[in-house]
Deep mutational scan, measured.
Amino acid sequence: VTTYKLVINGKTLKGETTTKAVDAETAEKAFKQYANDNGVDGVWTYDDATKTFTVTE
């Protein structure tokens, strides 16, 4: 299990959150659900070296 980070650069929501997941794909699903629940819809990137997803509106 690895800790992944999400950086949110939204129009109305900015911040960070983390999740523990077995792989990046599982973390991405959780983060996309989180973003959707919070009304954030943007461009996604992922940096494997830092295990960090970024979504920018």
Rank of each mutant, 00 (worst) to 15 (best):
T2H: 08
D48S: 12
Y46Q: 01
G42V: 01
V22D: 10
T45V: 08
V1G: 13
G39N: 15
Q33A: 07
V1E: 13
K20P: 07
V43G: 07
Y46T: 01
T17S: 11
T45M: 10
A24L: 07
F53P: 00
K32N: 05
K5S: 07
E25C: 04
K51C: 04
G15T: 13
G42L: 02
V43N: 09
T19A: 12
A30L: 10
A35P: 01
N9C: 05
T45E: 08
N9Y: 11
T12A: 11
G39W: 06
T45H: 08
A27E: 00
A21L: 03
W44H: 01
K20F: 11
K5V: 12
T3M: 12
A49I: 11
K29L: 08
G39V: 04
K29N: 14
A35D: 01
T56P: 01
A49R: 12
T52V: 07
E57V: 08
Y34R: 03
Y4N: 00
K20G: 15
N38L: 08
F31L: 07
T26P: 02
Y4C: 01
A21S: 05
G39K: 12
A27F: 01
D47Y: 05
A35L: 07
K20E: 11
K11T: 14
T26S: 13
E25D: 08
A35M: 09
V7G: 02
K20Q: 15
T12L: 13
E57K: 03
K51L: 08
T26F: 08
Y34M: 06
L13I: 10
N36D: 12
T45R: 15
A30F: 12
D37C: 05
V1L: 14
V55K: 01
N36C: 05
D47E: 15
Q33E: 11
T45P: 00
K51G: 05
A27I: 01
T54C: 04
E57N: 03
K14R: 14
T2P: 13
V40W: 09
L6D: 00
T50V: 05
D23G: 04
T26G: 08
W44V: 02
T50W: 04
N38D: 03
A49K: 12
V55G: 00
E57C: 03
N36F: 12
D23Y: 06
G42S: 01
W44T: 01
D23C: 03
T17A: 15
L6R: 00
N36E: 09
V55P: 00
V55M: 06
T54P: 00
V22Y: 10
N36Q: 12
D47P: 00
T50M: 09
N38I: 06
D37M: 10
V7Q: 08
W44R: 00
Q33L: 09
T54H: 06
E28D: 07
V22T: 14
T52A: 03
G39A: 13
K51A: 09
E57M: 04
W44K: 00
V1T: 11
A49Y: 12
N9A: 07
A21G: 03
F31P: 00
A30K: 09
D47N: 08
I8R: 01
K20I: 14
D23L: 09
L13R: 02
F31I: 02
E57W: 12
V55S: 02
T52D: 01
K11F: 13
D47S: 09
K20S: 15
A21I: 03
A21C: 04
E28I: 11
F53T: 00
I8C: 05
T52W: 02
N9I: 12
T18E: 10
K14F: 06
A24R: 11
K29Q: 11
N36H: 14
T54G: 03
K32W: 10
D48Y: 11
K5L: 06
E28N: 10
F53N: 00
W44A: 01
Y34V: 07
V40K: 02
K14V: 14
F31W: 02
T19Y: 12
V22G: 09
Q33Y: 06
N36A: 14
L6W: 02
Y46P: 00
T3K: 11
Y4P: 00
Y4R: 00
E16W: 08
A30V: 12
A21K: 03
V55L: 13
D47Q: 06
K29M: 10
L13S: 06
D37E: 08
K20M: 07
T2C: 05
T50N: 08
T52C: 05
V22P: 09
T26W: 08
I8D: 01
T54F: 06
A30I: 10
E25F: 09
A27Y: 00
N36P: 01
V40S: 03
V55C: 05
T12P: 06
T12V: 15
Y46G: 00
A35Q: 02
V43Q: 09
N38S: 10
A30S: 11
E25K: 15
V22A: 13
T26Y: 12
V7M: 07
D47F: 05
K14G: 07
Y34P: 00
A35S: 07
D37T: 10
V22Q: 11
E25M: 15
G39L: 14
Q33F: 06
T45W: 10
T19Q: 08
A21Q: 07
L6T: 01
F53I: 02
V22K: 07
T18L: 12
L6M: 07
N9L: 12
A21N: 03
K29G: 06
T12S: 11
K51R: 13
V7R: 07
K51H: 11
F31Q: 00
D37I: 08
T50S: 12
A24Y: 10
T54V: 12
V43M: 07
K5R: 11
V55D: 00
L13H: 07
K5M: 07
K5N: 07
T12N: 15
T3G: 05
D47K: 04
L13Q: 05
N9E: 15
K32H: 10
A30R: 12
A21F: 08
A30Y: 10
T19F: 14
T12R: 04
V7P: 00
E16D: 06
T52P: 00
A49E: 08
A30P: 02
Y4I: 01
T52E: 04
G15R: 09
Y4L: 01
K14W: 13
T12I: 15
E28V: 14
A49V: 08
E25A: 10
V40C: 04
I8K: 01
F53Q: 00
N9P: 03
I8P: 01
E28S: 06
Y46C: 01
T45Y: 10
F31S: 01
T54K: 08
T3C: 06
N36K: 14
D47H: 09
W44S: 01
A49F: 11
V1S: 10
D48Q: 07
N9W: 08
V7D: 03
V1N: 14
Y4G: 00
L6H: 01
K11S: 14
A35V: 12
V43A: 12
F31E: 00
E25Y: 11
K51P: 00
G15K: 15
L13Y: 15
K5A: 05
K29A: 12
G15C: 07
Y34F: 11
K11I: 15
K14P: 12
G39H: 14
K11Y: 06
G15S: 10
V7T: 10
T17I: 12
D41G: 07
Y34N: 02
T45D: 12
G39M: 10
Q33P: 02
E25H: 11
K5W: 06
I8T: 04
N9G: 03
K11H: 15
G39Y: 09
V1R: 11
T18N: 13
T19L: 12
T18S: 13
T12W: 10
K51I: 03
D37R: 11
V22M: 10
V40P: 02
T17E: 10
I8G: 02
G10Q: 11
D23I: 03
I8Q: 02
V55A: 03
K51V: 06
G42N: 01
V55Q: 01
G10S: 15
K11W: 13
T3N: 07
T26H: 12
A49P: 08
Q33V: 14
Y46K: 01
V40L: 10
Y34E: 03
G39D: 13
F53Y: 13
G39F: 13
G39E: 12
K20C: 05
T54D: 03
D41Q: 08
L6I: 03
K14L: 06
F53V: 02
